[in-house]
Write a protein that binds this DNA or RNA. Structure first.
Length: 286
DNA sequence: CTTGCGACCTGTTGGC
DNA sequence: TGCCAACAGGTCGCAA
């Protein structure tokens, strides 16, 4: 469920709550989450201290003394800090006991999330040995501009929403923010990438930056099950213009917001504010 | 190389 | 009311 703003919020919260805490035990009840040899997972992590908390796209990177933990929350991954006396919930699959007698618990209803243990604290090494190496720039990266997405967009014929969700084109955007970015850019989410004008591509890149920045400021979006840590909700849901607003009036023009499916993802848009350019040169020539 | 789709899981929601 | 298909903030592997 979490996109870049939610993952960033989680990163900041965990840095505050468990920074410089030492792991005294590691345990799990569902092994497939661990993408590393499980015995190593336990023996290596015990005794190590959380030093740095990084994020790349939707990946979290925790750097400890001699290793790094690379975590992807996928659809439903969450963290909680709990007292060891709290009964373990059904979906709390991984538990790190900390040196202040509290537990960092990883909760994941759908079990899609992953944890990789990388035996290095060097970010270059970590990136090189994980799928992070395939990520494109983030809209909030220093110096990000339309030039970073120009070539991939011109090369594709797929819907712009599909390209916004492709982490090798631009990283950090997910289903909610893709809809919001298309709306702010006044572009129909099904517009083929290779039919965008230069000006439209500039609008998309600027709005990507604006939307993600504001969402981070508000601690992310809580519309279904997202919470940062310990049940803390985001506040960006109050700013949503189209996502999740099927059959409700557009906040700008009152036209009924439509829901369609693009590449298997629910997609919300206003057909008046985001008209699909009727394709043709031929039409104009008549 | 791009594109679309099923698979991975479980829980909730919406329509008949 | 009840049932079951569709859907939920993501990615990966595979076939065309």
């Amino acid at each position: 469920m979490p996109e870049l703003p939610e993952v960033e919020t989680i990163r900041r919260t965990l840095m505050r709550l468990i920074g410089l805490r030492k792991i005294t035990n590691a345990a799990w009840t569902y092994e497939p989450i661990l993408k590393t040899d499980s015995e190593k997972f336990k023996t290596v992590l015990i005794g190590q201290t959380f030093r740095e908390f990084e994020r790349r796209g939707k990946f979290l990177i925790f750097q400890l003394d001699t290793v790094s933990l690379v975590i992807h929350l996928r659809m439903e991954g969450k963290f909680f800090i709990k007292d060891p006396s709290c009964p373990l919930l059904k979906h709390e699959h991984v538990v790190f006991t900390l040196d202040n007698d509290s537990e960092l618990r990883y909760h994941d209803t759908r079990k899609f999330g992953s944890m990789h243990l990388i035996e290095s604290t060097c970010l270059h090494e970590v990136v090189r040995n994980t799928p992070i190496s395939k990520l494109a720039k983030e809209p909030i990266d220093e110096g990000f501009s339309y030039k970073d997405i120009l070539t991939p967009l011109q090369r594709r014929s797929s819907a712009i929403k599909t390209a916004l969700l492709d982490q090798t084109v631009i990283s950090g955007i997910g289903n909610i923010y893709a809809d919001e970015i298309c709306f702010l850019s006044a572009l129909h989410p099904q517009t083929p990438c290779n039919r965008l004008t230069m000006e439209e591509i500039m609008r998309l890149s600027e709005n990507s930056k604006i939307v993600l920045t504001k969402a981070i400021d508000l601690g992310g979006t809580t519309i279904r099950t997202y919470e940062s840590v310990d049940g803390v909700h985001g506040r960006f849901q109050h700013e949503l213009m189209v996502h999740g607003r099927k059959n409700q009036p557009c906040r700008i023009c009152e036209t009924t917001v439509k829901k369609i499916v693009i590449n298997g993802r629910g997609t919300y848009f206003c057909e008046k504010c985001q008209p699909l350019k009727t394709i043709d040169v031929e039409k104009n020539m008549k």
